[in-house]
């Protein structure tokens, strides 16, 4: 197994998570898949030795954006 194989596996996971975040119906599930997408992108940045970018992607994509999206959807959902 060459060293590139795990990297390409992570890239495949990135594509799968991106498609899942777009195609999945439920809002909350879609947000969770989006944060998993951020984690996989973080891992791929770490593979490329761009650790600064990986750290920024991890804290923004998985931490901040998830909270902001969940709050925004909780605020805009119609209460019945």
């Amino acid at each position: 197994m060459t060293p590139e194989v795990p990297y390409y596996m992570v890239l495949g996971l990135v594509v799968v998570c991106a498609l899942g975040a777009v195609l999945i119906r439920g809002y909350i599930t879609s947000i969770i898949v989006l944060s998993i997408f951020s984690i996989t992108v973080t891992v791929s940045f770490a593979f490329l030795r761009a650790v600064d970018v990986a750290m920024a992607e991890a804290v923004i994509g998985a931490g901040l954006m998830t909270a902001v999206f969940v709050t925004a959807i909780g605020k805009t959902r119609r209460r019945s």
Partner: peptide, 25 residues
């Protein structure tokens, strides 16, 4: 740690600042 070691290790003001914002949340 991330903010104060920005010139020595990966990270810096932006990454540490976002972590602090997550702490606020």
């Amino acid at each position: 740690y991330i903010v104060f070691h920005g010139h020595l290790s990966p990270g810096g003001g932006f990454q540490g600042g976002v972590s602090l914002a997550v702490l606020v949340i």
